[in-house]
Amino acid sequence: MKIKVLYFARIKEAVNYSSEEVDLPESVTNITTLKQWLSLRGETWNRLFNGDQVVRAAINHTLVDNLASIQTGDEVAFFPPVTGG
């Protein structure tokens, strides 16, 4: 299935782009499996999703936890803990 993935702040700078369209294999069904799949892209990605720093996720503009399932056409975003205000 095809989805859109967005990256923000420190994470955007680490991966070096802000958004992409990806075609997921059937094994990717939720945030945890998406993180695992993206981690296979190389050292930067592996460090990002398996390192010490917290990565938050949103699906279609709503904050979600790692077990949230992903549907075709979803907009998934990865970002660090927020620091506004």
Partner: peptide
């Protein structure tokens, strides 16, 4: 509102 904004709203400061 301020307490929630600081932990929920997607803003990042550099």
């Amino acid at each position: 509102i301020m307490d929630y904004l600081k932990t929920q709203a997607p803003f990042w400061k550099k």
